[in-house]
């Protein structure tokens, strides 16, 4: 927040934002987001995602633009931007790498995956490589525990990781070879991901599978075994009966 007070208001953030400052098109898109909600302030989270997609981070300029558009103070917006971990006040890399080290992933090998990524990139978590290609984050649980250890690239799933797979993945990304998420689309960039999160489609929804193998484990087992919820259909008489449980429920009750 201190830099919000010292930086000149209209100045772009120099070399930190090689893709240039917020343009008129950005402003129009920010307004578009505000118009989507009954109360414009509800758009602040998406707006900050969009700011990141053009600035590569949330700069003090980005904070002020959002504040101006929503009739808030810069302090109010900065208070929000610094609360949520996905908003980066320092420039993120072209690809943002996250490795989960919450208890389960850590135990299953996530600590080793993180160590491999750190060694490979020469980074500590929350840092970005000098060439701007990669930034690294030590993640808290990303809701993919049945695919542990989990790594995220630009917020796409990289399931069942090993240190060797993680290293190979980084090589592919560095060489700009196509990389497919194990349960998602072709990796684009952190900035494009942020643009999609803000609410602007990149047309990739139909890429990737419907589900990963672990997600389908139960439904496959049921199919092979002929187990089905249809078995619980009460007899026609019960369907019109009162709140009386269907006869079949007695067996299921303890």
């Amino acid at each position: 927040m201190s830099d919000a007070q010292t930086e000149p208001k209209a100045a772009p953030d120099g070399q930190n934002t090689p893709d240039g400052p917020i343009t008129d098109q950005t402003l129009a898109e920010l307004r578009q987001l505000a118009d989507r909600y009954p109360e414009p302030r509800s758009a602040l989270l998406p707006m900050l995602h969009l700011i990141q997609s053009v600035e590569g981070r949330v700069s003090s300029r980005g904070v002020e633009v959002c504040a101006d558009l929503l009739g808030l103070t810069a302090a109010q917006v900065a208070g929000v931007a610094t609360f949520y971990t996905m908003y980066k006040r320092r420039p993120a890399g072209r690809h943002h790498i996250g490795v989960c080290t919450t208890a389960l992933c850590a135990v299953m090998g996530g600590d080793e995956v993180l160590r491999a990524v750190q060694d490979k990139l020469g980074l500590e978590p929350e840092q970005t490589t000098a060439d701007g290609l990669f930034s690294l984050e030590r993640l808290e649980c990303n809701a993919a525990c049945d695919f542990a250890p989990v790594m995220m690239v630009d917020w796409e799933f990289m399931d069942n990781m090993t240190p060797a797979q993680a290293e190979a993945l980084l090589d592919d990304l560095a060489a700009d070879r196509p990389v497919q998420s194990t349960r998602g689309a072709t990796i684009t960039s952190w900035r494009q991901a942020e643009r999609v999160l803000a609410g602007f489609s990149d047309g990739l929804a139909d890429e990737g599978p419907s589900a990963g193998p672990s997600s389908l484990r139960g439904v496959e087992l049921a199919r092979q075994s002929g187990w089905t919820a249809d078995a619980f259909q009460p007899p026609p008489s019960a369907a019109t009966a009162s709140a009386e449980p269907a006869p079949t429920s007695q067996g299921a009750s303890k």
Binding site: L45, N142, W155, E156, S181, G184, A185, D202, G208
Partner: peptide, 8 residues
């Protein structure tokens, strides 16, 4: 926010 593809 950290789950891009489900959001798409």
């Amino acid at each position: 926010g950290e789950v891009l593809h489900p959001i798409r």
